[in-house]
């Protein structure tokens, strides 16, 4: 057995990568393994709309060159899905039948696009936007000047929608309660924001609900969303943007508390002594509200990753949960958020 501790990080997003760097800064000798389902090394997901600005080579999206993993001594395990974590024996099981033992585990598995219950059966007919691969697929399937139908319209979707409008595409938005997620907006704010979107060229369908999706391969445009009143909305692609569901299914045997996400203290410590969590995957205890809360957005997540890493190394820092949740639209119709930073 080595005396240097082995830190395993699940996830290579902002939280995971930030944590890895922080771990290395704090301990030059420790072993760091990062396990991820991604095919690519770390890149900032918020840059993905850039593919519509012609950045089609994934290397253009890299914030850091791949060589940095070697420089930082991070063992990167890509395309490796964690299927189980044994919190007692302290190892993670990978789908390809490998066990990786850890001394301390940090879960930064983020979340997957959430799909409203009634639409799950249409999953295969819709386009996601969570990864470079998905972004390139969308770029390929959306003809120039074509129309994307968005169901929901969370901040990720709004972000993409703005880019699409800028680059000559059309966007039809079917609103849901998740529109502007993760921001919680009042009806008043919401109408103002939607008006701004319409002003920017978006077609907004309010007070209705998508009940079905279909695709025809003859005639264009191919995609069709059926609304509750039976009317059909046509476009080239259909994309759900209804917020995130945390990726926690592999943590069920890990001996940690789970609600929708992994429940952590403000120190980002789970209920298991050797497991921490950060990023979109976790819900952090908010003492004033007496509830576990998600804190989404790139900036929050990055702070969490670094903080969790420091605490794993022995610090005792607290994540400041008093984050202002405000979304605004200025005179020019530009939308800004207090934590959804670009």
């Amino acid at each position: 057995m080595t005396t240097t501790p082995h830190y395993v990080i699940i996830g290579s997003g902002s939280a995971g990568f930030g944590a890895a760097k922080t771990l290395r800064t704090g301990d030059a000798d420790c072993r760091i393994t990062m396990v991820t389902m991604d095919s690519l090394p770390f890149y900032n997901r918020y840059n993905l709309p850039q593919v519509f600005h012609g950045r089609h080579d994934w290397r253009d999206l890299m914030d850091v060159p791949p060589a940095q993993y070697a420089e930082l001594g991070i063992e990167l395990r890509r395309r490796s899905r964690v299927v189980d974590v044994d919190g007692a024996q302290r190892f993670v099981s990978l789908a390809h039948q490998e066990h990786v033992a850890y001394d301390r585990l940090l879960v930064c598995a983020g979340g997957r696009g959430y799909l409203p219950e009634n639409l799950t059966e249409y999953f295969g007919l819709m386009h996601g936007f969570g990864s470079f691969e998905a972004a390139m697929r969308l770029h390929k399937d959306l003809p120039k000047g074509g129309t994307a139908i968005m169901i929901g319209g969370d901040m990720t979707g709004i972000d993409l929608a703005m880019t699409l409008l800028e680059t000559g595409y059309n966007v039809t938005l079917i609103t849901t309660s998740q529109t502007f997620w993760p921001h919680r907006v009042t009806t008043q704010e919401r109408d103002r924001l939607l008006a701004a979107l319409e002003a920017a060229g978006m077609k907004v369908l309010k007070d209705t609900r998508a009940v079905g999706v279909s695709r025809e391969n003859s005639g264009k445009p191919a995609a069709c969303v059926t609304l509750e009143d039976g009317t059909e909305v046509r476009g080239d692609v259909v994309m759900p943007f209804c917020g995130l569901a945390s990726s926690v299914e592999f943590m069920l045997r890990a001996d940690v508390d789970i609600e929708r996400g992994l429940l952590v203290t403000p120190e980002l410590h789970t209920s298991n002594e050797t497991i921490w969590a950060a990023g979109d995957v976790c819900q952090i205890w908010h003492d004033q509200e007496k509830a576990y809360k998600f804190f989404h957005g790139w900036k929050n997540v990055r702070v969490m990753g670094e903080l969790a890493a420091r605490n794993m190394l022995g610090a005792n820092e607290i994540f400041d949960v008093n984050i202002e949740d405000r979304i605004d639209v200025d005179a020019d119709g530009k939308i800004s958020s207090t934590f959804w930073i670009h």
């Binding site: 090394p41 060159p65 791949p66 993993y69 070697a70 990167l76 395990r77 890509r78 039948q97």
Partner: peptide, 9 residues
């Protein structure tokens, strides 16, 4: 498993 040995690049 070989995935443990594939370079980031």
């Amino acid at each position: 498993h070989i995935s443990a040995h594939i370079d980031a690049a």
